[in-house]
Design a protein around this nucleic acid. Structure first.
Length: 501
RNA sequence: GGCCCCAUCGUUUAGCGGCCUAGGACGCUGCCCUCUCACGGCAGUAGCGCGGGUUCAAAUCCCGCUGGGGUCACCA
């Protein structure tokens, strides 16, 4: 039993089972999200199942906080799962830290069948052996304990040593057909017998990840390219698991390209743009972020790059994933997000903006009717000119404030010239006589007075008025803004401006 | 270093032997629209890493080179 004989899965469509299995060791990362997204999309496209499992076997690095953040991230993004964390399923529990008994059973089976063997050598000793044999000391383990005699073993035990457990790797080339890269072959001898269980019995990722995939019936493993070279190891393990009846087949593998940052480096936790929650705080909406992430390695059509999650679900295919790494481009991401913001219904948009306004104290925790009315009225104006939702703070501040006196941006004041006072004065005067204070009438009145009678260029006429009303140089359209403010407050703002400037 | 992966405009992506004097998008530039900013419209900018093959024909297939990346843990 030292050749790969286990069959590869033949699962199709509704039998597809994919999984997302992060280890909770930090803030959710956009690369992680992209992996989750592709797995999710593949499950939805095929009508298969998406399983969400947590790989928390390294107590020293895992944290409960990170675990909660990952769950929160998937929920926020709307990537729902059919089995796993919180929702349960036939393969509970879905946290590896709670599955130790299962692993011990599997270990016992593998050991009994002769697939594992005890390894007592330390890292230094392995290096020393390589050195002594004239090999590169970095060459790794030489499989020298495969057939330890009883007396040799006893000697180690007498020294108080505890063995790690290694897999007896078949001595043959290992090939598989990668879903995104095609056929890949690793020549025999590419890697040594590797450790699956620590001295003391604690199982490692190298064991636990394939074991859970096998027990959970995972048919397609879509994961980062960094795991490509561990695939032949896993296939070797699968073969052993198949032999002892734990695995029914070897899954298909697909290795997704990296998401890169600046330069030519993988986007790391160092890069702020890797942090999912930073994007959320800036005001990315899930639709926009997911759309952009999907574009990193995949495309829906030759001439289109804005699409909905529904369209992703209907069209996604692993086979069409591009194998080369993609850089995360904030500008492009912004453009995609702003397109999705524009597609939002006004009411939906208004609701999504609330948290940003609350966190800046622009509105109450329980928004008043007045606040809600202003936000709703401004929604269609705002949607068109926002890249991220947090911009709503600057755009809405002057509309939500009930004060006549404003704080003026330096930039806004700098845009004023000597005529500003007179212009605002004229505007104040003519607006008093506008009885129906609606955008159209406001515009008509101001246009007649400032542009026609005073013969000012529109931008010269309306610029100072905009500053007087908003304190800003860039705002939603002026006349609509005045309508939202109402006649009284508009006039009060103009008056306050005249007194101060 | 061994093994593995990758290679089209600045970025992303289309292209899977002839529809390619290489298409879209973002970015950038100019113009138009215009009360600011956006949106929208129009125009422009810029690319098949190199060398060999195969073929009537190659961005597309093969080989080599170069360059980039990953991995070789008792981490995941």
């Amino acid at each position: 039993m030292d050749l790969i004989t286990a069959p590869t899965t033949t699962a199709t469509n509704s039998e597809v089972r994919v999984r997302f299995c992060p280890s909770p060791t930090g803030t959710p990362h956009v690369g992680l999200v992209r992996t989750a997204l592709f797995n999710w999309a593949y499950a939805r496209k095929t009508g298969g199942k998406f399983i969400f499992r947590i790989e928390d076997t390294d107590a020293s690095r895992d944290s409960e906080e990170s675990y909660e953040q990952i769950v929160e991230a998937l929920r926020w993004l709307g990537l729902d799962w059919d089995e796993g964390i919180d929702v349960g399923g036939p393969n509970e529990p879905y946290r590896q830290s709670q599955r130790t008994e299962i692993y011990q059973e599997v270990i016992a089976k593998l050991k009994a069948a002769g697939h594992l063997y005890e390894s007592y050598l330390s890292g230094e000793e392995i290096e020393a052996r390589n050195l002594a044999a004239g090999r590169d000391p970095k060459m790794g383990y030489d499989n020298s304990e495969r057939d330890l005699s009883d007396s040799e073993r006893q000697r180690y035990i007498d020294e108080g040593r505890e063995p790690a457990l290694r897999l007896r790797v078949p001595d043959q080339d290992i090939s598989f057909t990668d879903l995104v890269r095609g056929e890949i072959t690793f020549p025999k001898g590419s890697f040594p017998d590797f450790v699956l269980v620590r001295p003391g019995g604690q199982p490692l990722y190298t064991l636990v990840n394939p074991v859970d995939d096998a027990l959970m019936g995972i048919t397609h493993v879509l994961r980062g390219e960094d795991l490509l070279s561990s695939t032949p190891r896993q296939i070797a393990l699968y073969n052993a698991l198949y032999d002892v009846g734990v695995a029914k087949f070897i899954p298909q593998f697909g290795h997704l390209p990296f998401v890169m940052g600046e330069g030519n480096k993988k986007l790391s936790k160092r890069n702020p743009e890797s942090n999912l929650f930073l994007h959320r705080d800036r005001g990315f909406i899930p639709e926009g972020l997911l759309n952009y992430l999907a574009l990193l390695g995949w495309s829906i059509a030759a001439d289109r790059d804005i699409f909905s999650l529904e369209e992703l679900k209907a069209n996604f295919d692993v086979a069409s994933v591009n194998p080369n790494p993609a850089r995360f481009d904030q500008k492009k991401a912004d453009a995609i997000n702003s397109a999705h913001i524009r597609m939002l219904e006004d009411e939906d948009f208004a609701n999504r903006v609330l948290p940003y306004l609350k966190s800046e104290g622009l509105i109450s925790d329980q928004p008043t009717e007045r606040e809600l009315a202003i936000i709703r009225a401004a929604a269609p104006l705002l949607k068109e000119r926002m890249i991220v939702l947090s911009e709503s703070v600057g755009m809405l501040g002057f509309l939500l404030s009930e004060k006549a006196e404003l704080e003026f941006e330096a930039e806004a004041l700098a845009s004023l010239d000597a005529t500003a006072h007179d212009v605002v004065k004229a505007a104040h005067q003519v607006l008093q006589s506008v009885s129906n204070f609606a955008a159209e009438d406001i515009q008509a009145a101001l246009n007649l007075e400032l542009v026609e009678k005073m013969e000012l260029k529109p931008r010269v006429a309306f610029g100072p008025v905009r500053v007087a009303v908003s304190g800003r140089r860039v705002t939603p359209p002026l006349f609509e803004s005045m309508e939202i403010l109402g006649k009284e407050l508009t006039l009060a703002r103009l008056e306050a401006f005249l007194q101060a400037h």
